[in-house]
Design a protein around this nucleic acid. Structure first.
Lengths: 246, 246
DNA sequence: GGAGGACATTGATTGAAATCAAGTGGGCGC
DNA sequence: GCGCCCACTTGATTTCAATCAATGTCCTCC
């Protein structure tokens, strides 16, 4: 529970400037939120919470990537949430974590103590409204994910995941000029498999296939470049008017 | 867009009394909501909205069952929402429907004109807060659904769906005394398949298997009885502390 | 009563991804 | 530099659900 220097999060480039409930970005709520907020860093691989743990804060991701996942009694696990910078974690009004939360990279979170945050939500309508908007976005994302899990082939699942990460990654980058999309996969093959409802072997095979066919290029095991985003989108099975990432 | 007699929804037994945004149940907001609300009936099989349609209302389901679904370009479809009585439909702040909405039985909806509803949300914090709570519940349901789609076997999927419907059905019934759970399936085999990410043949086979093994009993094609709910729960693959429906 | 249609069941076969089983390669500590 | 470990790749085989194909059962409408 270590505080980090406030100045490391500069509002002008704050990744959560658009959507998150964050004192740095909401001048009118600054004073109220400022009092109950603190920053916290988790190292790569660290478990932030187990299902059923008491969670005394809610938070937004400032940097890094965390995952939510659920497990059946025999150990099969499914990722049910991918938290990228600006995403919200935790549920006001609920004491216990409903999912296993894990940091897949080093993660910095902007935490708000739960009780005072809930109180603020009650007294400051703006916060509840913003949280509602964010939750509705998450619900939309969850539903698109359901379509992926229920009806897409392994190849389409991989292409979809790459497209999602490429899009999110591009929207975080300030430099949008480069014609070629490049990014580092923030997930292991196993985490990708848990995201997609596949095994890690199938993920590996399909990534290799996309590479072999020139849809993507691999530098090392994690660095991806996409020479032609449209071509990748064709592999997703989605309607093609999904829009470019920039 | 026909109005129905207000007295047909009696507040004392109103199925939406617990969660929905409904003037009949919220005395302090009654006057405000009353002005912008109307009832509307859709017949079984009728499409309530296509993806991309302009939707000038939001609504709660009073009776009947509706589904939300998404389709890939080649026609594969996945159900992404199942609206039972008390569930909310539509998204404040969004003009267009994001999903195909279909009535699978006759459906009565309590509709609120979108613009005034949005205005009310802005001025009446309680409504936004309640909607947030409902949306968070939906998100939890969506995530459980993702676990089902990504990691469960066909048999577990069927058992899970039956358990979900049995639970919801039991919570709607006033008579909770009977030891045996009985209900009518509100979905065709094809709709069940779309819910579960299976084909209708697989659904049919697995339902037959559960019947053959005595986990469920079938009267006709749609009427199910569950002699032993615990036994059904064992087939879902879930942790067994999910709780009984009554 | 019989034709037609929607919904459902059942059987035979195929196929995509899981599973089982080696291997590869890069990073790191010693 | 060497060995070890971890993340990943690749191959062989199996399996579960999809697909293809009849057939069955109501129900409604003449």
């Amino acid at each position: 529970m270590q505080d980090i220097e406030l100045t490391t999060v500069d509002c002008a480039d704050c990744p959560i400037r658009h959507r998150a409930v964050c004192a740095r970005c909401e001048t009118d709520e600054l004073e109220l939120l400022e009092e109950i907020k603190y920053y916290r860093t988790f190292e790569a691989g660290q478990t932030i919470a187990w299902t059923g743990d008491k969670l005394d804060f809610v938070a937004t991701v400032v940097s890094g990537i965390a995952t939510l996942s659920q497990t059946l009694e025999d150990g099969r696990t499914q990722m049910v949430g991918l938290l990228l910078p600006s995403d919200f974690m935790g549920r006001p009004g609920r004491e216990m974590a409903s999912y296993d939360v894990t940091a897949t990279t080093e993660v910095v979170m902007c935490c708000f103590r739960r009780r005072p945050f809930e109180e603020l939500m009650r007294t400051t309508p703006h916060i509840a409204q913003r949280l509602l908007e964010m939750t509705l976005d998450e619900l939309d994302a969850a539903r698109e994910w359901m379509l992926l899990l229920g009806r897409k082939t392994a190849r389409e699942k991989i292409a979809s995941l790459l497209a999602i990460i490429a899009r999110r990654d591009a929207s975080l980058k300030l430099s949008k000029s480069e014609g070629i999309l490049e990014f580092d996969l923030p997930l292991t093959r196993e985490a990708m498999a848990d995201y997609l409802g596949l095994t890690l072997e199938t993920v590996s095979r399909q990534v290799s296939a996309l590479k072999r066919e020139g849809v993507i290029e691999l530098a090392g095991k994690r660095h991806i470049s996409v020479p032609d985003f449209e071509r990748l989108m064709l592999e997703t099975g989605d309607d093609t008017d999904g829009g470019m990432p920039f």
